[in-house]
Structures are given as structure tokens and as C-alpha cells.
Amino acid sequence: MPVEPPVETPRDLAEAFRLMALSPRTPIAGGTDLMVRITGEIGSPPDQVLDLSRLEELRGIALEDGRLTLGALTTYAEIRRSGLVARSLPVLAEAAATVGAVQIQNRGTLGGNIANASPAGDTLPLLLALEAVIEVGGARGERSIPADQFWIAYRTTALAPDELVLRVRIPLVEARQVRFRKVGTRRAQAISKVVLALAWEQADRKDRWSHVRLALGSVADRPIRARSTELYLEGSRATLETADGAAETVAAEIRPIDDVRSTADYRRQVTARILHRIIRDAGGW
């Protein structure tokens, strides 16, 4: 039963910053999270809404200084269609393809996924593993927040109340390997039970792994980096012993919960097993 809150639609970023500075407003981009609450049947509707959809400054995918830059309004469909993403960071397109289904991919935005801060946000572990930098801004200016400092508590971000997510910059690294895996209950339109993103650097397949980054979704109150496991993997080779040790380390490191979608035991076990699988495949044994 819709009871609609007021909304303003700024035409440029300056106007948006000005409105945000007046009083806090809930931003809407693709609406895939926020509109669910409009009827008041699921969650509470926001008091006042700021429609970002006309802000052309927040669109576009570009390659700048060895970094892939994606505007906050970039949709999953745009990521999947982008030739630039396909060439420079195909794993991002792979992750975007696991979000919802066509309708959600056409509307849902990367900025929305970031700001909504769901512990199950599909792309967030990938941003963590890739050491993305999230650029935010408001009337007081712009600043950059590394992804691993962005989600600070359950559904809480480092954004100030008057700030908006503007764009994401992902460093492109030669010799970086990235793997992404989402486990849901069904193959489309599913909220994740476990999301895993793993990145490491390796000049040659036989080399030891360096700069290992492991990030996980749906196993904590926010998307997290699994730092003990990263440390364990740093300098290792993809052997069975490494895989066993990493699986045990990650299982001990995370504290998932039982909820309506899955159980803590399942999440812990599956996280370990898919990490084990990725190392097994990387090692080719």
C-alpha cells in the first residue's frame, strides 16, 4: 500500500550536494533496494528521497591511469555489456552476471550496491579483493575511501550523512589472478549464502602467490577481508597442503550465522571448500 515520501530530482551534482547539505535524504539510483520499502509492507519507507538518476556526472566506465573507473550509476547490465570491462577486468562482468536477473541488472547500480552496504551485496567482496577505492563527495568536497575501510558495521558505511558515492576506481594489475564465486539457493534471482573473491599476483603459474586478497560476503555482518587466510596464503604455492591449510584457516577465521537463507555450518564449510577448489584448480592437481 504505497504512501509515497517526497522526492527531489537534481539535474547536476552541485544541486545534489546542496540538497544533501540541507538535510539528510535517502538517495535513490536504480531503486532495486529502496523501492521494496515504499509500500511499507517490507521495512519502513524513507522520509525524504533524493533521485540521483539524472546525474550524468555519475555515469560511465573509463580507463584512467591504469585504473578502471566506474561511475556510481553504472548498472550491472552496463558492466556486462562493456567492452572495456571485458578486456580489462572480465571478473567484474562475471560478478555482475550473478546479480538478480535481467530486470535487476538493468536497474541496479554499482553505487547502490556499495551504499546499501548489505552483508550479502554481490559485488562487494570483489571490490574488497581488488582493493578498489570508493570516491565519495558532498558540499564539503570529495574524498577517497579504500574499500576495506568503507563498510564499517552492519549496514553502515563510512559515508557522512551529506555524502554520496560518486565512483569506484579499481587498480588494474598485471599478473593478477582473480576468482569470484557466488553460492545462492538458485541460479538466478538469489541472495547469496556465500560470496567469495580471491585475488593474487603471480608472474608464472609455478610461482609463489603474492599480494593475496581474500574477501567474503554473507559470512559476517558486512563484507569482509579474511586477513588470516590471506597471510596464510601469502608466499605459498597452490599445493594440496596449502589448500588444506587455507581451508582450515578460513573456516576458523569467519563467524557466520544461521539465518533464513542458510546455516552457519554450511557457510563455513562451503567457504572453505570453494576456496580449496580454487586453489586446487590453480594448482592443476
Binding site: I42, A101, T185, R186, R187, A188, Q189, A190, I191, V260, R261
Partner: peptide
Amino acid sequence: TIEEMKVQDGRYLNDRLSTYLIPTAVD
């Protein structure tokens, strides 16, 4: 395979289409 009503204290926990899942065309 996937259709499961989760009941806690006599209440259905997954009383939404995002939580009670039925097969899609790809499933």
C-alpha cells in the same frame, strides 16, 4: 530441492519471494 518453509515459533520466517524460493527458468 529448494522449496522450504522455515518456521520459528509458529511463524513462517520466509514469507517473501526473496526468501521463499521457487525455481526460475534457469533452474
